[in-house]
Amino acid sequence: MIKLRNIDRYIDKRLQRNFILKGIDLDIEEGDFVSIMGPSGAGKSTLLNIIGFLDDANEGEYYFLDEPVHSLNERQKSEYHRSYIGFVFQAYHLIDELTVYENIEMPLLYRKVKGSQRKSMVADMLDRFNIVAKKDLFPNQLSGGQQQLVGVARALIGSPKLILADEPTGNLHSDQSKEIMETFKKLNKEDGVTIIQVTHSDEMASYGDRVINLQDGAVTENNPYEEE
């Protein structure tokens, strides 16, 4: 599904070139549940952003579903965002002025889904995450875990093939974190959604079935079958 070849990401500063990512080769298959780990500044988030088309690599090739991403234009990238990729952020990133219901509904608006169909899809999602009672509340009226549930619901409503989660549990306490990770695991197993998450926690990484370790912009360990 995802094929990265010799990806470089760097920032030029005066005479010096600072590499954030250097020579990344990575293959991720459909149905994988991958955790990207590594110390702060290793380039985890940057890698995730490149995978999610939010950032561009300076060098190298990236194929998403065999489509060369490095030659897609903005319109085509938006198309992939709408139909294939869902994001979950550490800071939830819900729109403060919209209710739970409206936040979840928003991706459907960009996909131009009809009104009646939208209603039933959002209702399904609310049901699935047990937040029907909260649908008319605004984000700041919810706890962090509840906000992240809404974030996940929003990411899922477009039935994406890939979910990218940047420290999804970073701001949550352990019970809430578990709930989110269980949800991810269920999605991965039952619906076959590919999930890539960035995390610091071994516990959270253990929900996945593959860990990629990053150090100073390079993959140091790439063990698809490691359990511990």
Partner: peptide, 16 residues
């Protein structure tokens, strides 16, 4: 800005 970022990640075009 945050709203802009979210909308873009959800597939909004600049035009929109």
């Amino acid at each position: 800005a945050k709203e802009v970022g979210i909308r873009k990640s959800l597939g909004s075009l600049r035009k929109q």
